[in-house]
């Protein structure tokens, strides 16, 4: 009988314990918004345990309920997939009043993901979460699958900063900003978000893309475009993490590295590029027990290299090419 047939959940190696903006986490491995519903979904799987992850980022939440996009919402591509869910969620009132009270905050940390179509909506949803048990708030200025807000804010550094400022004034909880890779210079945007009050940065959201149904000559997914995730985007994400690290690490702002992580080796790459935490999303669809496997691989790596977790972050032996943008001194 293989190991897969006899799964015993185990808490992560204590040496993987770490902190994010003052929050103590079991592991640097976190589960990403949009891939794990409102926290409980993966616990249906035998052997999956929420105490194996440092935090769970809940499904993107707006002020009012959203049905999301019509089917078909996804399309698999080489080493990844396109999704266009369209921020389906029951609205912040239901999340705060009905869903959060049912979560077990002793197992892991729960982080809200705030989305909106206007500055006022971002601010109000943040305010509602501030008045809840949620451990931290992630501002999603990079969702590519809605017609208003989302990535339209996140691709403009001025608008990004205004959204972060609006949210910052509504909460004292740790504020994480999820950055889009779909922009000219992610460093400029990262710096503006930090100046506007971000406590941490999530790098990256999905990369916009499309597929085509040749028979019907229609774009896919049905929305007409989608966000590409999975191993295909890992090289893009790694470079973005390294670029953002140039401006965030000197300011003491941690990065949650994400984009195509599907093994412990991938996670180590993101830490070396400058991330303090690593996010799992699409990788779970290949291996639902990925958090445990990444934890095990990280522990082995620390052992073999006689390192502490924090020593891995940004430990590239030589820097990436310097930015040519004169406005981007770190």
């Amino acid at each position: 009988m293989s190991a897969l047939n006899s799964v015993t959940p185990t808490r992560p190696d204590p040496r993987l314990g770490c902190r994010l903006c003052g929050l103590e986490l079991n592991s640097p491995v976190v589960l990403l918004s949009g891939c794990v519903g409102f926290g409980e979904e993966y616990t249906r799987i035998e052997g999956f345990s929420l105490d194996q992850v440092g935090a769970v980022f809940l499904k993107g939440t707006t002020l009012l309920p959203r049905l999301g996009n019509a089917p078909h919402r996804l399309w698999e591509t080489a080493s990844g997939y396109l999704n266009a869910i369209g921020l389906q969620n029951p609205g912040v009132a239901v999340v705060v009043e009905e869903i959060l009270p049912r979560l077990d905050f002793s197992e892991t940390r729960y982080i809200a993901n705030v989305s909106g179509s206007t500055l006022e909506e971002y601010a109000e949803v943040t305010r509602r979460f501030d008045d809840s048990r949620i451990d931290a708030i992630e501002v999603n200025i990079s969702c590519p699958n809605v017609r208003e807000g989302g990535v339209h804010f996140g691709n403009d550094p001025d608008m990004s900063a205004r959204v972060v400022e609006a949210c910052r004034t509504r909460t004292q909880k740790p504020l994480i900003v999820k950055l889009s890779p779909n922009q000219t210079d992610i460093r400029a945007n990262a710096r503006r978000c930090i100046e506007a009050g971000a406590d941490a940065l999530a790098v990256i959201n999905t990369v916009t893309g499309m597929a085509i149904d040749r028979k019907r000559r229609e774009p896919l997914p049905s929305y007409g475009q989608g966000g590409l995730s999975g191993p295909a985007i890992k090289p893009i994400a790694l470079l973005k993490v390294a670029e953002v690290a140039e401006v965030s690490l000197p300011r003491g702002i941690p990065i949650i590295g994400q984009g195509g992580i599907s093994s412990a080796e991938d996670a180590i790459d993101f830490l070396l590029a400058g991330a303090s935490l690593v996010g799992l999303g699409t990788g779970l669809f290949y291996d639902p027990l990925l958090p445990r496997h990444v934890n095990q691989g990280l522990s082995a790596y620390l052992n073999e290299n006689h390192l502490r977790l924090a020593e891995v972050t940004g430990a590239l032996s030589r820097p990436i090419p310097a930015s040519r943008n004169p406005n981007l001194e770190s």
């Binding site: 949009g34 891939c35 794990v36 519903g37 979904e41 993966y42 249906r44 799987i45 499904k59 049905l67 999301g68 019509a70 089917p71 078909h72 919402r73 996804l74 399309w75 698999e76 997939y81 999704n83 869910i85 389906q88 699409t282 779970l284 669809f285 639902p288």
Partner: peptide
Amino acid sequence: EEYMACAIGGCAGCTVP
């Protein structure tokens, strides 16, 4: 039937009205 990614309720990719 619908296209599925996670198949465990996490991604909301397989929804129908």
